[in-house]
Design a protein around this nucleic acid. Structure first.
Lengths: 115, 115
DNA sequence: ATCGTATATCGTCGATGGACGATGAGGTCC
DNA sequence: GGACCTCATCGTCCATCGACGATATACGAT
């Protein structure tokens, strides 16, 4: 019943940021799309649709998720839309992960050891 | 370090692996839990529950997701269970992300430029 | 203006996720 | 044997996701 009284439990904004980016990456199709954009084999939405066994509406939805997470950028190019991976944003994810891995262990709290 | 050379739209197993780990990290509470375990401020399930404004069942569920993704390991210690972060597994995520960022651009497919 | 193309959005549906209380499966102690 | 304590699991509820077809929007071409 005791609420989170004592420590503020470190409401770290980076936790939410990391979770948000990770959530956007948490679907195989979106990883595939991102890799396609990284390879620069495809840019336009229609090209991406052709690469995937999914309907156009579904692909567009995944693109929206990636765009909302800042992982890709869409540029209107005449009748089509060209998508580009936002490499800095993706590198930011690696940065956040590495930061998390690099957390120092408290020497006194070793209640169990990793293998 | 050119990873991929003229391989279009490959069904990469690492895509699924990356997506699976990212999905497990795709919730703020789970990132928080992971950070707690990294800091070694808490190890036992009960301690983690006290740090979070969530019911014990909910925390246990999040722990299961992290465990299924291989990000943490649970060890039975008498009546309690001690959880530890699996640093190698988390580092694997950073590795997969860095690998994704490092994909070389195809010089002929520049349909739009990033800033 | 009309047509065709390219993309986004809407509405719907089934599946999954996240929260909880209640219960169950173990362990420790007397 | 009890009476605890710790944690996992079950069942339920509501919200969100992921997929789709249908439709709307925007644009270039005729």
């Amino acid at each position: 019943m005791t609420a989170v009284a004592a420590t503020p439990a470190r409401i770290d904004a980076t936790d939410d940021e990391l979770a948000a980016i990770a959530k956007a990456l948490g679907h195989p199709v979106r990883v595939r799309i991102l890799r396609l954009l990284m390879d620069r084999t495809s840019c336009y939405c229609g090209e991406i649709v052709e690469e995937l066994p999914l309907a156009q509406a579904t692909v567009s939805q995944h693109l929206k998720v990636l765009k909302d997470a800042g992982l890709i950028v869409g540029t209107i190019d005449g009748p089509r839309v060209c998508y580009c991976a936002h490499r800095e944003r993706l590198a930011r994810l690696g940065e956040l992960v590495n930061n998390l891995v690099a957390v120092a262990k408290s020497p006194d709290a070793a209640c169990c050891d990793e293998e």
